[in-house]
Write a protein that binds this DNA or RNA. Structure first.
Lengths: 222, 222
DNA sequence: TCTGCTATGTTGACGCCGTCAACTTAGAGT
DNA sequence: ACTCTAAGTTGACGGCGTCAACATAGCAGA
């Protein structure tokens, strides 16, 4: 191995191609649709070829999960860049309009909305890193460092810098509260009691939820 | 059929036995562990016998989901009955100790905790009604009427009666905000970034989350 | 340049899965 | 007693994940 992983022996980055096809299938039909044999078929390769790059289908699935997570992160970062979402949002107590503080809060809200967007527009991918019995051999990668979580962390740290959030509260699980609420709503809207609600009303629920959480964020002592 | 579904022809309520075995397997290994052939094997019956009672494995799965949901409801109701959980909880603004109002809020908190309890103590069952690509033929039963949701509804209505919550806010999606937050946390703790956290710290997160939501509940206008 | 090694990919087989069609059996109703 | 049908069985099909054995291609050292 001379270090050139770009175009190996026969196919040309089979591993990447497999993950690509698998990702496509996951997007179409969720994690259960990632069928090793079919993935190989799409790439134009025999089923067992995959075993040269992955230990098995669960290993391939792990790579898909990872890739889906990266897509999510991209989506969040992109949303963050073209931030400053339109008005019509909740007015927050003690935060003056147009301030850096308000901007930070808007960014936080934007990230929540983007997370939700991803879930409803890419349900197949969303379901990939959502639930699933713990795979014994996947212990190596603690998902705690999940990339998408990093985005949330950054925005929250920003809020601490601009003084919207006390460092104390920041450390007390605000991130988790936020993520929990938005993630939970997403799940409820995909397969739960809210699945059959029209899209617009689902987004209404989203603002209701973030409304509650934001006010709780500002108001809760502890 | 004279109306006695109690002990039919050969086996004696095969359908029930199948769901029972399937539920057991789901509890052990999550929804993916519900393998029709194995279920039949455990009940001591040929695989295709199941087809006299269910249209297929997805239909059986639906029944398992339903049963798991009922377990959850039982769990919640039981927790509600022996309510009044110990103190040490968040003090709420404008609610005097020992009042009916406080009791109602404690019940609400208890229900959230019970929901979380169920998720972490029965992860296999929890995952059953959690996520999964929508099954086309399952349209008949809108999950909106999910039994477990009813329990939450009751407690919230109670809060409106005792005046803790305005009817207006009640209608604005409080239920969803609550369920979202607790459900989201549960998912995060089962497979997400919090999966490897010690149990005690996970419960700490739970109080952090309910803390935020409860204060948001009290404080949010709209 | 030739030789051979190893990474890469293929073939064929195994056992398990969900499902179907065809057959058998056992109770209920006349 | 006869029949009819619900309930359960057998055997088969194709698809799945995976394994062992085989084939090949490109690089390394002679």
């Amino acid at each position: 191995m001379t270090g050139a992983a770009a175009r190996p022996y026969h196919h040309g980055n089979l591993a990447e191609a497999l993950v690509g096809a698998a990702l496509e299938m996951a997007a179409e039909g969720g994690p259960d649709a990632v069928v090793l044999r079919e993935v190989a078929r799409r790439v134009g390769v025999s089923a067992t070829a995959a075993y040269r790059h992955f230990t098995g289908q669960s290993d391939l699935m792990e790579a898909v999960k990872q890739a889906a997570m990266e897509r999510l992160e991209q989506h969040l970062r992109h949303a963050l860049d073209r931030s400053e979402p339109a008005a019509g949002l909740v007015a927050l107590p003690g935060v003056e309009r147009g301030s850096a503080q308000e901007r930070g809060i808007r960014r936080l809200e934007g990230i929540g909305r983007a997370y939700f967007d991803f879930a409803v527009s890419q349900p197949g991918l969303f379901r990939c890193f959502c639930i699933g019995m713990p795979v014994p051999e996947s212990q190596g990668v603690p998902v705690r460092e999940a990339a998408a979580f990093g985005v949330l962390t950054e925005v929250l740290d920003e809020l601490v810098t601009t003084g919207v959030l006390t460092a104390q509260r920041r450390a007390a699980g605000v991130d988790i509260a936020l993520w929990s609420a938005v993630h939970g709503l997403a799940v409820l809207c995909l397969d739960g009691p809210l699945a059959e609600l029209p899209r617009a009303e689902q987004y209404g629920m989203l603002t209701a939820v973030t409304d509650v959480v934001f006010h709780g964020l500002a108001g809760a002592r502890s």
